[in-house]
Simulated scan of single mutants.
Amino acid sequence: MIQVIIVEDDPMVREINSKFLERVEGFVLHKAVSNLEDAKKVISTKKPDLILLDVYLPKENGIDFLKWIRAQEMDIDIILITADKSIDRIQEAFRYGIIDYLIKPFSFERFKEALLQFKERYYKFKKNDVIEQKELDKLKASSNFSEKEDDFTKGLNKYTYRAIWDEIEKKSYNDFTAEELAEKLGIARVTVRRYLEFMEKENKIDKLVEYGKVGRPQYKYYKI
C-alpha cells in the first residue's frame, strides 16, 4: 500500500481529503496533520510515499516545506492542493518537483485521477531498474495535464475509463446501470454515461432500453 500524509489546516477539508483517499484503492492514510511542524515530526519517524500538501497554512507556506524536503534530499512525492491559481506559484511548484497541482475546489474524479497517475508511475519504477524511452514517454504523457489522451475522444480520460471498465469486469451479474457504477465509483452519473457510450462504440458493451409503466426508460448495459 502507498503511504500518504495529508497536510491541511482546515479540519473540514482535511476530513474530505481523508475520505477521498479512502475511496482510492492502493492508498492508505498514514497521518493527517494541520501544520508543518507536525508534518516534519511524522516524516522523521516514518517517511511516506506521497504527501498531499496545502500551500496556505497559518503563518506557514507549503512551498517552503516543499523546498525543505528537496533540500533534505528525501525521496517523497508531493501533490499540492491549494486555492492559489497564480501561474508564478504553479511554475515554482513544478520546478521543485511536484507531480500534480489540484486547485480547490476540485472533484473526487480529479483527485482520483491524480492518485491513479501517481500509482501507475510508482509501481512501474518500483519493479524495474531500467525503462525504455517508449515506456517513459507514456508515463510522462499520462502525468502531463496538458497532454491529449491517445485513442480517446476529447474530454475523456484514460484513468477514469480504466476505473469504470475495471468495475464492469469485476461484476458477477450480467447487467448493470450507469447509476450503479456512479454510486460505486463516486463519479458523476452523466460522466459515467459518456464513458459507457464510448465503450458501446468500441463494442465492449451493449445497451438495452427497458420501458416501464411510468417515467423515463431505463438503460441497462451488458458486457459483450
Rank of each mutant, 00 (worst) to 15 (best):
I78E: 05
L80R: 01
T82N: 03
T82K: 04
T82M: 01
T82G: 00
A83S: 12
D84F: 02
K85C: 05
K85Y: 04
K85V: 08
S86Q: 10
I87T: 14
D88H: 01
D88N: 07
R89H: 11
I90F: 01
I90S: 02
R95F: 02
G97P: 05
I99R: 13
D100A: 03
D100V: 04
D100P: 02
F106Y: 14
F106I: 02
S107N: 08
S107E: 06
F108E: 00
F108V: 00
F108I: 00
E109V: 12
E109D: 09
F111S: 01
K112W: 01
E113H: 07
E113D: 12
E113C: 09
L115M: 04
L115V: 02
L116D: 15
Q117T: 09
Q117K: 15
Q117M: 10
F118I: 13
K119H: 09
K119S: 13
E120Y: 11
Y122T: 04
Y122W: 14
Y122S: 08
Y122V: 05
Y123D: 06
Y123W: 14
F125P: 00
K126E: 12
K127Q: 15
K127D: 14
D129C: 09
V130D: 12
I131S: 12
I131E: 08
I131C: 07
E132P: 01
K134L: 13
E135P: 00
L136D: 04
L136P: 00
L136C: 06
L136F: 14
K138R: 10
K138A: 10
L139E: 00
L139I: 08
A141G: 04
A141Y: 03
S142R: 15
N144F: 08
S146P: 01
E147D: 09
K148S: 04
K148D: 01
K148T: 02
F152V: 08
T153I: 15
T153M: 12
T153S: 12
K154L: 08
L156V: 07
L156I: 06
L156S: 04
N157W: 01
N157H: 12
Y159K: 03
Y161M: 14
Y161D: 07
R162L: 14
A163P: 02
I164H: 09
I164F: 12
W165V: 07
W165S: 05
E167K: 11
E169A: 10
E169C: 12
E169Q: 15
K170H: 07
K171I: 15
S172K: 11
Y173M: 02
Y173F: 05
Y173L: 03
N174K: 14
N174P: 06
N174M: 13
A178D: 01
A178H: 03
E179G: 07
E179I: 07
E180K: 12
E180T: 10
E180P: 05
E180I: 04
E180A: 13
E183K: 15
K184D: 03
K184F: 02
L185A: 01
G186C: 01
G186A: 02
I187D: 03
A188D: 14
R189Y: 00
V192Q: 03
R193K: 14
Y195Q: 07
Y195N: 08
Y195K: 04
E197A: 05
F198R: 13
M199K: 10
M199V: 03
E200V: 06
E200W: 06
E200P: 00
K201P: 08
E202L: 09
I205C: 04
